[in-house]
Simulated assay, not measured.
Amino acid sequence: MSHRPFHHGNLRTVLLEQAEVVLRERGIDALSLRELAREAGVSHGAPRSHFIDRGALLDALAERGFIRLADRIREAASREPEDHARALHAAASAYLAFAERDPALLDLMFATKVGEPSEAVRGAAERLFGTMTDIMNAGVEAGAYDADDVGRLTLLLSATVQGIAALVTSRRITTPQSEALVDDAIRLFLKGASAG
Rank of each mutant, 00 (worst) to 15 (best):
Y95G: 13
Y95W: 15
L96D: 14
L96A: 12
L96C: 14
A97T: 15
F98I: 06
F98K: 02
A99P: 15
A99V: 14
A99T: 13
A99I: 11
E100D: 14
R101I: 05
R101D: 12
D102K: 01
D102P: 13
D102T: 07
D102H: 12
D102F: 05
P103L: 12
P103T: 15
P103D: 13
A104F: 00
A104M: 01
A104T: 00
L105I: 03
L106R: 11
L106Y: 09
D107P: 01
D107E: 15
L108N: 08
L108S: 10
L108H: 04
M109G: 09
F110V: 11
F110N: 05
F110I: 09
F110D: 03
A111V: 15
T112N: 03
K113I: 01
K113V: 02
K113A: 07
V114A: 14
V114G: 05
G115R: 02
G115D: 04
G115C: 00
G115E: 08
E116Q: 04
E116C: 00
E116S: 04
E116D: 07
E116I: 01
P117C: 04
P117H: 02
P117E: 01
S118G: 07
S118C: 01
E119Y: 04
E119I: 02
E119H: 04
E119S: 04
V121P: 00
V121M: 00
R122L: 04
R122G: 02
R122C: 00
G123I: 01
G123L: 03
A125E: 03
A125K: 01
A125N: 03
E126R: 11
E126A: 10
L128C: 11
L128P: 09
F129E: 14
F129S: 15
F129R: 14
G130K: 05
T131H: 11
M132Y: 14
D134T: 13
I135M: 07
N137F: 11
N137C: 10
A138T: 10
A138N: 10
A138H: 09
A138W: 08
V140H: 11
E141V: 11
E141C: 04
A142Y: 13
A142H: 15
A142Q: 13
G143M: 06
G143T: 10
G143Y: 07
